[in-house]
Design a protein around this nucleic acid. Structure first.
Length: 421
RNA sequence: GUGGGUGUAGCUCAGUUGGUUAGAGCGCCGGAUUGUGGAUCCGGAGGUCGCGGGUUCGAAACCCGUCACUCACCCCA
């Protein structure tokens, strides 16, 4: 019979790897809390309409990458492809705009997109993201970008680059599109087939094309940042000034365009050369119109998301080592020792000490081998000799130093030593 | 959806121009006498060579198909 294997594009995270994941998640939580963001946990699946309306019905994500399925009553449901839509939905549904603003949330969890897997891209992947509602001030843009930058820097990820751009307001983009299109149609001959198609679907994305010929052709294209309204321009300038003031290095990238429809004004992305083709570690931007689009009040907002698999790929090996180690191995053997060992294990664990035992081992030799393998720091030897004396031998597995201790009250004795040490 | 690369033991990989019972290292299990781990030595288990077809006296090897994994395009975190 064939064994059942995991679905394409999903990955098991085995015990060897979970420490590095906890390390990353802990850092994300710590930094988010430091910036005043609070954790929100939203459902893994939602009504399909939510994503179609927020991300944009014509985007690749919605058109061909969502895990969409009918519920038993026929309602179309979708596994969340990103976290912003659900967070905004929750914000509106619980009328959080009536609470004191700003409301700042962060989330960590799995997302789902049906794409061909490759390095740094899975069908079930994990994101850490933040969303800040209620502040239009450019300083909150600076804050969000700073949080992203400081977190990734703190994790020690190599060769990070922060790129930033302004997409302007919706009016700015509407005014800019014909200008860009006029330019593009003049240079249509030198554009790739894809870009010619994009001229109709989403002309801004032509600027984001990676093909060298296209890049050359659009080198002298009119820039969106040159066609910003005075308000959008001022907002962008203040964001840049803020980043400079706090020492976050950035690179202007007039070609930077986000793939989701809801972004406006500030748009940013952190990339690394260490990632292969999928080089974006984290990205985000402002989405002032989204809350209203989804039926809520007019509330400005900004957020970003980080791809945790990509962070993990880049995380230095040393960063997360030896996060957890077991302390005591109870080597209980012989008739009386085995019985007492069962009780001792329970007592150690109840006072909060990590304790381990291999129940298959019957001899001291076998026990010590297991103790060594499980990387415990101490072995507690408890054979019939010790049992008859009402004692145990505490063996330091590294130094091999041994001392005899009374069995009665051993757990609390070790606990107090552990606290002192 | 489109291309390229790779499939041999739990893991990393050898395997000659096609030639007999398919190998190594690591890991795993056991042993080296009676209550002291890691090292060393000895022994053992574990493979329908991804799967199906074809060529051949003979295929892990060559051909076709298929599946899986992987990288890239596309797109995105």
């Amino acid at each position: 019979m064939d064994i059942i294997k995991a679905i394409k594009g999903v990955k098991d995270i085995l015990p060897e790897e979970t420490p590095r994941w906890r390390f990353i998640e802990d850092a994300a939580r710590r930094w988010a809390l430091a910036y005043g963001y609070q954790e929100i946990r939203i459902p893994i699946f939602e009504l399909t309409a939510l994503f179609a309306r927020s991300i944009g019905a014509a985007t690749d994500i919605v058109e061909k990458e969502m895990y969409t399925f009918p519920d038993r009553d026929g309602t179309s449901l979708t596994l969340r492809p990103e976290g912003t839509a659900g967070t905004v939905r929750a914000f509106i549904e619980h009328n959080r705009a009536a609470e004191p603003l700003p409301q700042k949330y962060f989330y960590i969890g799995p997302m789902f997109r049906h794409e061909r897997p490759q390095a740094g891209r899975l069908r079930q992947f994990h994101q850490f993201g933040v969303e800040s509602f209620g502040t239009a001030d450019p300083r909150v843009d600076v804050e969000a970008i700073a949080l992203l930058w400081r977190l990734l820097s703190d994790l020690g990820l190599p060769d990070l680059t922060l790129e930033i751009n302004s997409l302007g307001g919706t009016g700015d983009r509407a005014a800019y599109k014909p200008i860009l299109l006029a330019f593009l149609s003049q240079h249509e001959a030198s554009l790739c087939a894809n870009c010619r198609r994009r001229m109709e679907t989403n002309p801004l994305r032509v600027l984001d094309c990676k093909i060298p010929d296209c890049r050359a052709a659009t080198e002298s294209a009119p820039k969106l940042t040159e066609h910003l309204s005075p308000e959008a321009r001022a907002h962008f300038d203040q964001v840049l000034a803020g980043l400079t003031a706090i020492g976050v290095p950035y690179q202007l990238n007039p070609r930077l365009v986000r793939g989701l429809d809801y972004y406006c004004l500030t748009s940013f992305e952190i990339t690394s050369t260490h990632l292969g083709a999928q080089n974006a570690v984290g990205a985000g931007g402002r989405y002032d119109g989204l809350v209203e689009t989804l039926g809520g009040p007019s509330v400005p907002a900004i957020g970003f998301a980080v791809g945790l698999e990509r962070v993990s790929l880049m995380l230095p090996e040393t960063a997360s080592s030896s996060l957890h180690e077991l302390l005591y191995y109870v080597a209980a053997f012989g008739e009386a020792g085995t019985k007492l060992g069962l009780v001792l294990l329970d007592e150690l664990r109840r006072v909060g000490l990590s304790a381990q035992c291999d129940y298959r081992a019957a001899t001291l030799k076998a026990h010590l081998r297991q103790a060594d393998r499980s990387k415990c720091r101490y072995a507690i030897l408890l054979g019939d000799d010790e049992a008859s004396r009402g004692a145990v031998i505490l063996r330091n597995l590294e130094t091999k130093a041994q001392e005899e201790l009374p069995l009665a009250g051993l757990a609390s004795l070790l606990k107090s030593r552990n606290l002192a040490g």
